[in-house]
Simulated assay, not measured.
Amino acid sequence: MTNEVIKKYIGKNCRISTGSFGTNVIGKIIDVNENWIEIQTKKGNELINAEFVQSIKIDPSK
């Protein structure tokens, strides 16, 4: 997944899945830098390597 596609969703609430790696993160995308996506979650900020992302689902209500 390219950074340009992900950058369109900065500020949006979403669910990011890495599929077979078993990670699902729910939160707001706050930054995309090189291969890293920074997400604000209820537990704090998390970083996900964009190379392992299989899907991003945007929450249309928020």
Rank of each mutant, 00 (worst) to 15 (best):
M1I: 09
M1N: 01
T2S: 04
N3G: 11
N3E: 01
E4L: 14
V5G: 10
V5H: 12
V5Q: 05
K7L: 03
K7H: 11
K7S: 07
K7I: 12
K7W: 03
K8F: 08
Y9W: 05
Y9L: 02
G11P: 09
G11C: 10
K12M: 03
K12L: 03
N13K: 13
N13A: 06
C14W: 10
C14D: 08
I16A: 04
S17D: 09
S17A: 00
T18G: 09
G19R: 04
G19S: 10
G19Y: 09
S20L: 15
G22I: 12
N24V: 01
I26C: 04
G27K: 04
K28E: 05
I30L: 09
D31H: 07
D31P: 02
V32K: 11
N33H: 11
N35D: 12
N35I: 03
N35E: 12
N35M: 11
W36L: 02
W36D: 07
W36Q: 11
E38Y: 07
I39D: 05
I39H: 01
I39C: 03
Q40A: 14
Q40P: 04
Q40F: 15
K42T: 12
K43M: 01
G44R: 15
G44N: 12
E46A: 00
E46D: 03
E46F: 01
E46K: 06
L47C: 06
L47M: 14
L47E: 13
L47V: 06
I48N: 02
N49S: 06
A50M: 01
F52I: 00
F52V: 04
V53P: 06
Q54W: 12
S55Q: 00
I56M: 02
I56E: 03
I56Y: 04
I56G: 05
K57S: 05
I58M: 02
D59E: 11
D59F: 07
K62A: 13
